[in-house]
Amino acid sequence: MNSQIYGINSNISWKVLKDNVVAVNLDNGNYYTFNFTASLIWQYLDQNKTIAEIEQLINTQFPDTETVEKDVEEIISYWLPEKLISKK
């Protein structure tokens, strides 16, 4: 069980547009567009869910999807060096 919680960094401004998140790094002007699944994960992070809880929620929404755990950890490991999120 991964009980780690990640928070969205304070220099990131974001909004949900048509179910998809758009996030802007206010420090360097780079912006990011997320697909639906990534947007779900992002919003769960914003609700202070642990990684395990997020995986469970995604699995509930999309039953029998084998790759959820790996996919969530991959996207988290992409967001960390981009300084979109950090460990709490």
Binding site: G29, A38, F62, P63, D71, Y78
Partner: peptide, 24 residues
């Protein structure tokens, strides 16, 4: 499997992806 229905919208699971756009 791999399909979610919410408020009449059916979604198929897609791998989470983020596209980065560089600032001008």
């Amino acid at each position: 499997s791999k399909i979610s229905e919410n408020a009449g919208v059916i979604r198929i699971y897609e791998k989470p992806e983020t596209k980065k756009h560089d600032a001008m």
